[in-house]
Amino acid sequence: MAIAVPGVAFAVVLGSTLFLRRHFGGYGRIQGWQGMVTAAVLCTGIGLAAYAVWPLPRGIDGLCALDGGAPAALAPLARRPETWAAAADAAVAAAVFLPVGLLARYRYRRGLPSTLAIAALLAGGIELVQGSALLGAYPCPYRVAATGDIVLACAGAVLGWVLGGAAAALLPRAWPGAIADLMPPGLSRRFLGHALDVAMWWYGAMLSAGVAVAAGVVPPGQAGQVRAVLLLALAVAFGVLVPLLRTDRSAPGRAAVGVALAGRGRPSPAARWRAALRGALLYTPAAVLFAVGLPWWAAAVWALHGSCALVRRDQAGLFDLITGTRVVTGSALTGRLPDRLIRFTPARTPGAPANTA
Rank of each mutant, 00 (worst) to 15 (best):
G279H: 06
F344S: 03
W302M: 09
G186C: 14
F344K: 08
Q315M: 14
R109F: 12
L48C: 08
G47V: 07
W297Q: 08
M1Q: 11
P81C: 02
P267E: 14
A309F: 12
L277C: 13
R254F: 10
Q315L: 15
I118F: 11
A145R: 15
G216E: 06
G25E: 13
W302N: 02
A166P: 14
A145Q: 12
A251W: 01
A88N: 02
A153S: 09
A223R: 12
G210A: 07
G204R: 02
Y138P: 02
P139Y: 09
P71Q: 05
C43H: 05
V211W: 10
G101S: 06
L159D: 05
A237I: 14
V53K: 00
A65T: 06
A298W: 03
A291D: 00
R21H: 12
R249C: 03
A255E: 00
S250I: 02
W297N: 02
V240N: 01
A72H: 09
P113T: 11
V53R: 01
F24A: 10
A11H: 07
D67L: 02
R272F: 11
G210E: 00
V218D: 00
L318N: 09
L116T: 06
D339W: 14
L244E: 13
L192H: 05
V162F: 15
V8P: 01
R227P: 00
A120V: 15
A298I: 06
I118S: 05
P81H: 02
P220L: 13
A75R: 12
G35K: 05
A117E: 13
Q130M: 15
A178V: 12
G330F: 10
A215I: 09
L102D: 03
G306P: 02
A354K: 10
A166K: 15
L182Q: 11
L14I: 13
T115L: 12
R22G: 09
A155H: 10
V198F: 06
L196P: 00
A332M: 14
L234T: 02
G258P: 09
C64E: 02
Y138F: 15
A271I: 06
G160L: 10
G131S: 14
Y108A: 06
G351L: 13
L281N: 07
T345C: 13
A214H: 13
V288H: 01
W297F: 13
V236Q: 02
P139A: 10
R254D: 01
A199S: 13
L321P: 06
G69H: 08
G351K: 12
A262L: 15
A9Y: 11
R278T: 06
P57R: 02
P219C: 04
R227H: 05
P346S: 10
W54R: 02
L234Q: 08
I3W: 03
Q225T: 12
F319R: 00
L134Q: 07
L289T: 02
C308K: 01
G258M: 09
